[in-house]
Write a protein that binds this DNA or RNA. Structure first.
Ligand code: SF4
Ligand code: SF4
Lengths: 129, 129
DNA sequence: AAGAATCAATACCATATTGGTATGCTATAG
DNA sequence: CTATAGCATACCAATATGGTATTGATTCTT
């Protein structure tokens, strides 16, 4: 339980590779080096790019590079870029509409746990992994 | 992201109710009080019972009660009873078979994060929620 | 012994999510 | 101009999930 998705998982792998090289890397190279299927890499990098995690360059010699140093990118940033805001329960994210929330008094507790997990994930940088 | 399932979520609600009463409670009452559909309550309690979280009693005046005091049941116990072992990535659970694990060097990092999350969830008791 | 209450176990289904793929379009270096 | 490489979107198959239904077993009460 509480698994992150495969795409998010691979995103970290890809980001780690980007960080390790420091240069602009094309999707084809990323796929070859990480053994993640090309089309999947494409999808992941697009999301990361749209969320400002990486910069993209088109055209010949284009590719991707990290937007920040690997040591200052947090794990939670990448995870949230891939899968949306961290929320362990429905009621944690603002605008929750759990059917029984009216009668449930655990929201506080979950909120607190959510914060703690967020804290862990935000204190771990890409280079820490 | 990182949401727990609805059934696990409800399991905590039900367990909290059981803890708050301290007596043996029938499914019908649990459903009425928590506003969780009867058939769903049945399914959840069965799993909790099979995993030793609650004791069950059949026959007239039967029902369920917590197997331990609410203050000594941890959140992670209930979550794992409902959704299996906590593992943030595939490689964390022993016997992982991620396709690229051979070329991935993030296992260590994830394992460490997994332990930290486990620690949070195991330091929170049912009554803390 | 009978009958009602109550849990056990399993099977079933509809829907949502996920992982993964394909394709045509746009931008840029040279 | 053209080859390269990312952008955007649509699509699909497989799985997981939430939720429901049904039949059987057990126990209390009378
Ligand atoms: S309100 Fe209670 S039940 Fe609904 S999501 Fe929040 S915690 Fe879970
Ligand atoms: S091996 Fe790397 S990619 Fe595979 S699951 Fe573990 S972390 Fe994710």
């Amino acid at each position: 339980m509480l698994k992150i998705g495969k795409l998010a998982d691979y995103a970290l792998v890809l980001a780690e590779y980007l960080g390790s090289t420091g240069r602009i890397v094309a999707i084809s190279e990323l796929s070859q080096e990480t053994h993640i299927p090309l089309a999947t890499v494409r999808k992941i990098l697009l999301r990361l790019s749209q969320n400002g995690i990486v910069y993209s360059y088109r055209g010949v010699n284009g590719g991707y590079e990290l937007a920040k140093a690997a040591s200052s990118i947090t794990v939670v940033e990448i995870l949230e870029a891939m899968e949306g805001p961290l929320s362990i329960t429905e009621c944690v994210s603002t605008g929750s509409e759990c059917k029984i929330s009216k009668y449930c008094n655990l929201q506080r507790g979950w909120c607190s746990i959510n914060e703690k997990i967020f804290s862990i994930l935000s204190r771990t940088s890409l280079s820490d992994l």
